[in-house]
Amino acid sequence: MSDAVLQVEGLHKAFGGVRAVADVSFAITAGEMLALIGPNGAGKSTCFNMLNGQLTPDAGIVRLAGRDIVGLRPRAVWRLGVGRTFQITATFVSLSVRENVQMALYSHAGRLRSLLQRFGAAFRPEADALLAQVGMLDQAERPCGVLAYGDLKRVELAMALANAPRLLLMDEPTAGMAPKERVALMELTAGLARARNIAVLFTEHDMDVVFSQADRIIVLDRGQLIAGGTPAEVRANANVRAVYLGSAH
């Protein structure tokens, strides 16, 4: 697995004695779409938050392109080329769509410290190019606070792409979107990932999206990985069916 963009080994996390994630290991290669699925409370978000520095694991190794990133703050992880979208969208609601993307571009270029220059003069073409890619250019002037939920997800994607990432972490990227939009957004993501050779790790509860877009799927239940493989393999796995449909003893 020398070509792994992200390699996770033996990840552990407990909250107040309750095990949230236990001994999770997996890897993801450039250009690959990897889905992390599991029922509510399986530990998906906890797992995600340990990958970009939001949470520190109790044990385990997270390697980004060979470099151990455990203990780094989210902003440092970002600087190493990891883009992130959130389950509940986190955008700057009082800024316009374009300004949101420009904020990421300014930050990437280290140019946020100026006091007198006017924000928004620089990186306009770059921001518009990213917005065009996610299909949000026509709404560039609108404040994020008034956007439809699905559109916010697109803005987040554009922001996540602003630092030319090698890995995208997307937590429930299509939650709250209309059914038609979901597949469209993930097709878009998959296309970008392949074109730019970005590895994408995403959690998702819409099985249409998961099985149509993921190259590989790993399944988490009560903090542990119980299955992994191609969509066809996972669909056929008895453990996975038991987790989703409930066991009949």
Binding site: R73, F86, S94, E99, F119, N163
Partner: peptide
């Protein structure tokens, strides 16, 4: 703008390196 961004979403500000 960075301050306003941080007020709107500290989570996102941190996630884009601010």
């Amino acid at each position: 703008f960075a301050l306003r961004a941080g007020r709107d979403s500290p989570l996102r500000a941190e996630a884009i390196g601010i």
